[in-house]
Amino acid sequence: MKLYTFWPMLKKEFREQNRTYRLVISVIVFLSLGISAPIITWLTPDLLKNLGNGATIILPPQTATDALSTYLKNMVQLPALVLILLAMGTIADERSRGTAVTILTKPVPRSIFVLAKFLAYEGTLIISLILAASGAYYYTSQLFSPLPVGSFVILNIALLAFLTLTLALTILCSALVRNSIAAGGMAFVGFLVLVVVPNLNASISRVLPSVLFRPERVAQLVAGTASLSETLWPLLVGLGLAGLLVALTCLVYHYQEI
């Protein structure tokens, strides 16, 4: 890899993340969701009590594990949608505006152009996820009890793998078409497939990171009874698939007319 072209490209992409408020948006949305999950879990029995018109809904007392499940549910929905919205134009817009031509006429390989974009978004994702996880952990400790740190970190790595897969898919779609809205639509369909397909086939679901978000797996991880191979495989497959999608994006973009 030609590092003398890679670092300036990466710096340019990070500046772009900052200038277009993508970093701020991502941090605020992730942090809000991280903080709100334990609060909503804590309030659920109270909210349900006040909801029914005469009907009484009694829930068992909520625990830190319930707060963790809510956090995971929150973090696979809106953040994925926000990532798609933020990244859908990353290559498509540069092509339609003609700025990609200006950059690529300089000696910058197209694969470095794609990699710098992916890593800048990945950096934004990692910063946002760390802040969201810290907020969720702090609030869960305050409202319930502290969660086991090891399991919490593993579940956040699974979240990172799942969201990285969504991000890689969005960047691939952005390289395939010139229109950012079309790229976003395609990425959204891909995201739905990623969420729905594991529910249809048990053997596929076993190796995707989303399997770790199931309540029974969360309970096993928190209790420390989850097996190492069943935990590691989904993480490796998720990150591996994301890597493959990025490689595919580089390949697609290499043969495209700018």
């Binding site: 701020v24 948006i25 605020i28 942090l31 809000s32 903080i35 709100s36 609060i39 907020g135």
Partner: peptide
């Protein structure tokens, strides 16, 4: 903090 984050955005 939750309210502040929403307001900042």
């Amino acid at each position: 903090p939750l309210l502040a984050l929403d307001l900042i955005l």
